[in-house]
Write a protein that binds this DNA or RNA. Structure first.
Lengths: 205, 205
DNA sequence: CCTTGTTTCAAGCAATTGATGGAATCATTT
DNA sequence: AAATGATTCCATCAATTGCTTGAAACAAGG
């Protein structure tokens, strides 16, 4: 049985999917409390009651957004794992960093929403602590940091967390850092990737 | 002439300072939009109009909070620079990471508020883009990544940003990551420091 | 005690926010 | 065309939010 979210994604022109897309972007920019349902409705040019008709309350829509970006990340990670399979470690790291950085710079809401979830409390005792599949252990396994996929050591998971967050930081921080650095978007992205490799390649060689 | 903020800090028992302290913590946990003036007032056990009497509107209080934590960081960085002066590079890095991590784990609002500023948009066209002294260049210089303190190259600033953010991530993310990792606070902090050193020591040797 | 200035709070206002009910529109089937 | 179900909007609600007013409590001298 396809979930409500899956159905919405099947037809990207459907109203439900359009709302989800706008919600993704706006929740990502302003956070949960910084976003109003009216902001989302306005972005899709609909009445707010139409939004409620499709997604129910704000928290439910937010939940759907989180599930959506998480699923996107999972897909991308599977894709990357296929590309790097069999290559030497350093090359694997370089390719994986490039791929993930490109993907996230194209979909910065993913990084925004992820970091929001990590760092922010919810006023309404976080109904949003629902089960989100974590892929940290999978990445650690894929990087060869653990023999057992289901029992990845603490330090390996912390390393993966550190790497993923480093990418998210550069992506989410672009709006703040780039004016600070006074560089173009292209320069910024290139240097962000270089910096990621600078720390990661040396660490794993 | 001592600013409003400086006066408040002179006497930490003053109502103004107490409000600032509570605001620091709560803005850090919930973000600007997630925080209501009533939440802060309640934490100090005062009426909300007393808060307005001392600090004026919400945005001004938030601004004062940002200035306050920024000043704290600046002081700490000066302190750390004194400690590591003259030592060999690797030792300097290890000590600096330990010191900063300890400081931030004791004052997690600093990391929270910093990351918030980096990653979140404000609905009200960010009156909060006021001038905040950035110390990224100073750190880069202190690490020997640049000869000229006033003209630090792009890649050096990106490296420093990456390091600082890595620390902030572990501090701010504790509430999310620690239950995920199922470790005690002590274990978490120790491993966070280890991970920071793992990436940084190898990169700069 | 009285005055003067400071600090506090109770009450409330206007705007915004999350959310709903019901009428109108649209699409599909018969 | 009539009937049915799905979708959309208008109008509105109650609660919350940022913020202000005016009066009370407090402090310190004279």
């Amino acid at each position: 049985m396809p979930s409500s979210l899956e159905k919405a994604k099947q037809n990207p022109d459907s109203m439900k999917a359009k709302i989800l897309g706008a919600a993704r972007k706006i929740f990502g920019e302003y956070g949960f409390h910084g976003t109003t349902t009216r902001m989302i409705a306005k972005a899709v040019n609909i009445d707010i009651s139409t939004l409620y008709y499709h997604w129910g309350e704000k928290g439910d829509l937010y939940e759907a957004v989180i599930m959506d970006v998480t699923e996107g990340m999972r897909q991308k990670l599977i894709e990357v794992e296929k590309i790097i399979k069999g290559r030497p470690l350093e090359e694997r790291i370089r390719i994986a960093l490039d791929e993930m950085a490109d993907y996230l710079f194209e979909n910065p809401e993913i990084s925004n929403l992820t970091l929001f979830r990590y760092f922010t409390k919810m006023r309404h005792g976080s109904v949003l602590d629902f089960k989100v599949p974590e892929y940290i252990s999978d990445i650690a396994y894929s990087m060869g940091l653990s023999r057992d996929r289901n029992n990845v050591p603490f330090d390996a998971r912390m390393k993966v967390l550190s790497i993923m967050n480093a990418i998210h930081n550069f992506v989410s921080g672009e709006n703040f850092f780039r004016p600070m650095m006074q560089v173009t978007r292209e320069e910024y992205i290139r240097e962000a990737k270089n910096t990621l490799k600078f720390f990661n390649v040396s660490a794993f060689s």
